[in-house]
């Protein structure tokens, strides 16, 4: 890493001894190949969008790295009129970046889930993982077993320069140097979420939502979230608090979540809410959902859905909640 053309201090340099958690964050939003990365001093955002109706953003906190240095001196253009957007960014091919991170086969989903599973056991956390065993081929464990994580050093010298990754499994083993071409960003696609008009907010263990969504037939077209406020007083209402309604060519499915703190950790709903989304859009969050620990779902008055997934950080309980992935999705028009 001593190319003479590079300025003495790169915009970004970061290192990590295990790229699995970083890769899991990126994999969560990898439903489209073009990702825009905006850098900041405490981490960076990786945003992906499709059709301007769904956006996925991975908030890569500097906590995911052992070392993180950001320096934008002299790189920001002087005529920076918009003060809200993070200034320095580039576009990158996300799938290529993921292939590079997994070059030694140790940043895959299999290794992360087995690793997080052992951590979960330590926390005595009964997170229904039964389907994770079936998601991977029977041979996967032989290929990923007994390998430590891949260490990484990442740097970005500035606009016009590639994103450079140096990866190594161990000090004596092979090293991989990847130079990913960066592109000028097209500007962020933001889906507005009106924070002050949130009419529904649910926090639940990801496995509860994951199991529900995995039950649904992939040919489903529409997915409706129905929320009714919790009954007041002692008169127990028959109406469920949270219902997922899936409609497709071959019929419809209804799934109800009971009014139970074990299931719905947080449930805030001020008025009956019903919004419909395209199932294929919600399904784009599956990878993030599968890797995540907890899910937060919110809708605003316009029906915009915000789903936040809390990702494992690999550093024990204290740091959980720092890493998350957010999806925002617009509702189908006819239901608004």
């Amino acid at each position: 890493m001593s190319a003479p053309s590079q300025p003495p201090k790169p915009v970004l340099s970061a290192s990590s001894h295990d790229v699995r958690y970083f890769a899991a964050l990126l994999r969560g939003v990898s439903f489209s190949n073009r990702a825009t990365i905006y850098l900041a001093s405490n981490g960076f955002n990786v945003s992906v969008q499709e059709g301007k109706t769904i956006t996925g953003t991975a908030f890569v906190s500097d906590h995911v790295f052992d070392e993180y240095q950001y320096n934008d001196e002299g790189f920001l253009p002087a005529s920076q009129d918009s003060d809200s957007a993070p200034a320095l960014g580039f576009e990158i091919r996300l799938n290529t970046l993921l292939e590079c991170l997994n070059i030694f086969g140790t940043a895959g989903t299999a290794s992360l889930s087995s690793n997080s599973k052992s951590k979960k056991q330590r926390r005595n956390d009964h997170d229904g993982d039964s389907d994770e065993n079936n998601r991977h081929g029977p041979l996967d464990k032989y290929f990923t077993a007994n390998t430590g994580g891949t260490g990484m050093r990442m740097s970005y010298a500035g606009p016009g320069h590639p994103l450079t990754l140096i990866l190594a499994e161990s000090s004596s083993g092979p090293t991989a140097t990847c130079e990913l071409t960066t592109f000028d960003p097209e500007g962020p696609v933001e889906i507005e979420f009106a924070q002050n008009t949130v009419n529904m907010h649910i926090i639940l263990k990801s496995s509860w939502l994951r199991d529900a969504l995995s039950e649904l037939d992939p040919s489903c077209e529409k997915l409706t979230f129905v929320c009714t406020p919790a009954p007041q007083g002692n008169n127990a209402s028959r109406t469920p608090l949270f219902r997922i309604l899936a409609e497709g060519m071959f019929g419809s499915t209804e799934m109800d979540y009971p009014n139970d703190r074990e299931v719905l950790e947080t449930f805030i709903c001020t008025q009956p809410v019903k919004f419909t989304y395209r199932f294929s859009h919600i399904a784009k969050s599956t990878r993030a959902l599968q890797a995540s620990l907890k899910t937060s779902m919110r809708t605003d008055d316009f029906g915009t859905l915000s789903m936040q997934f809390m990702m494992p950080s690999g550093r024990g309980r204290d740091d959980d909640g720092i890493l998350f992935v957010e999806f925002r999705c617009l509702p189908l028009d006819d239901q608004v």
């Binding site: 091919r93 290529t96 590079c100 070059i103 092979p174 090293t175 991989a176 990847c178 130079e179 071409t181």
Partner: peptide
């Protein structure tokens, strides 16, 4: 879009 070099 990418150059990768693995060294052994």
């Amino acid at each position: 879009e990418v150059r990768v070099k693995v060294e052994f």
